[in-house]
C-alpha cells in the first residue's frame, strides 16, 4: 500500500520536473521582447478598438506611436487631447492640441419634405439599397434611412428619428471616430469641427442636381441659389455643382446665411434662440406630430386607390 503511494508521488514529481524543464527551454527559445511602453500607452487609450485613428485597434495605435516616436501624425479622436497628452508624457514627446470634431448629418430631407416615390422591400441595409437604385424618394443623394450609420456607431451616439426617418447624432457621445462616415453609402455623414461652445453651421444637403430638379423632389434641397454666398462677409461659403458648402475654418458663426436660405437647410446648432427668426416652415412644424412613414405611404395608396 505505502509502496504504491510512494510510486505515485515519485512518478508524478518526475513528470512535473520534466515538464518544467521543457517549458523553461521553450519559453527561452520563443521569448519575444516587447517594449513595455506599448503596454503603458495602450493602458491610457480608450481601448474601444474603434479604428477612428486609422489603425485596426488601440494596440496597433500604441505600437505605431512607440515605434515612430513621433506623434505629429497620430491622433486618437476618441480620447481627444487629454489622452494624447498622456501618451506624449509616457513617450516623452510633444503633441499639438487638435480641434475636436463631431459627426453631422448633411441631409434634412425628412419624410415630410422629401416624398416617397416607391417602397423599398429589400434587406434593411443602406449599402444594399443604395447599390440597387437611387432610393425610395426622388432624391438620389439623400439619406436612405435604413440606419447603417447607427449600426456602425459603437458609442450609442446615434439614433434614427422615427418621425423624420433621418439619423441624429448625440453630440455629447460622439467621439468623431469616423465609423458612420465610412458606413454611409451616400456620403452624408461628415466630421465637423466642434466649434466654439459647440456651435456650428453647416449645409444640410448633398444634392448636386440643378436647383429646379433638386427642389422638385425635396422641399428643403439646396438649389445652389448662392444667396448665402452673397450675404457671407467672410467668404466662407462656396457654391460648387449647385450645392453650397461652408468652410468651418472661415465661418465666424454669424448666422446671416441661415436666415436667407429659402430651403431652411443651413443648420445652426447650439445657438440661443433668435427672437426675430422665422419659424422653420410653419406648415411643417404644425404637422410634425403625426408623421409616420408607413402610414403616409398607405394613406397615399388609399387615396389613389379611390381615385
Amino acid at each position: 500500500m505505502s509502496d504504491s503511494i510512494l510510486y505515485t508521488i515519485l512518478s508524478l514529481s518526475a513528470l512535473g520536473a520534466i515538464a518544467a524543464i521543457i517549458l523553461y527551454f521553450v519559453s527561452r527559445k520563443f521569448k519575444v521582447y516587447e517594449d513595455p511602453k506599448i503596454g503603458n500607452v495602450e493602458e491610457v487609450l480608450p481601448t474601444t478598438n474603434c479604428g477612428g485613428c486609422g489603425f485596426p485597434g488601440c494596440r496597433a495605435f500604441a505600437e505605431a506611436a512607440v515605434s515612430k516616436n513621433d506623434l505629429s501624425e497620430l491622433h486618437c479622436p476618441v480620447g481627444g487631447n487629454e489622452v494624447m497628452k498622456q501618451v506624449a508624457e509616457i513617450l516623452g514627446l510633444e503633441v499639438e492640441e487638435r480641434d475636436p470634431y463631431v459627426a453631422v448629418v448633411r441631409c434634412t430631407g425628412s419624410v415630410e419634405y422629401r416624398k416617397k416615390t416607391n417602397i423599398y422591400d429589400g434587406a434593411p441595409n443602406c449599402t444594399i439599397a443604395a447599390s440597387l437604385y437611387s432610393g425610395d424618394t426622388g432624391c438620389a443623394y439623400g439619406c436612405v434611412g435604413l440606419g447603417e450609420c447607427v449600426d456602425a456607431c459603437q458609442f450609442d451616439a446615434m439614433y434614427m428619428d422615427e418621425k423624420t426617418g433621418l439619423p441624429v447624432v448625440i453630440e455629447d457621445k460622439c467621439t468623431a471616430c469616423n465609423a458612420c462616415v465610412t458606413a454611409c453609402p451616400k456620403e452624408i455623414m461628415e466630421l465637423w469641427p466642434q466649434g466654439r461652445r459647440n456651435r456650428k453651421i453647416y449645409v444640410g444637403c448633398v444634392n448636386t442636381d440643378k436647383g429646379g430638379a433638386a427642389r422638385k423632389v425635396c422641399e428643403v434641397a439646396c438649389s445652389g441659389c448662392a444667396k448665402c454666398d452673397e450675404v457671407c462677409r467672410y467668404d466662407a461659403i462656396t457654391i460648387e455643382n449647385n450645392l453650397a458648402r461652408i468652410d468651418p475654418e472661415l465661418c465666424k458663426l454669424c448666422r446671416k446665411c441661415v436666415d436667407v436660405c429659402d430651403a431652411h437647410n443651413i443648420i445652426a446648432v447650439n445657438f440661443p434662440p433668435k427672437k426675430e427668426r422665422p419659424p422653420r416652415k410653419a406648415k411643417a412644424t404644425a404637422k410634425k406630430e403625426d408623421v409616420d412613414i408607413i402610414g403616409m405611404v398607405k394613406k397615399e395608396n388609399d387615396k389613389k386607390d379611390e381615385a
Binding site: N118, I119, Y120, A123, L132, D305
Partner: peptide, 10 residues
C-alpha cells in the same frame, strides 16, 4: 402609375 411600386433586389 397610380400607386407606389415595390422595389427590391432580385
Amino acid at each position: 402609375s397610380t400607386k407606389f411600386l415595390t422595389v427590391s433586389p432580385s
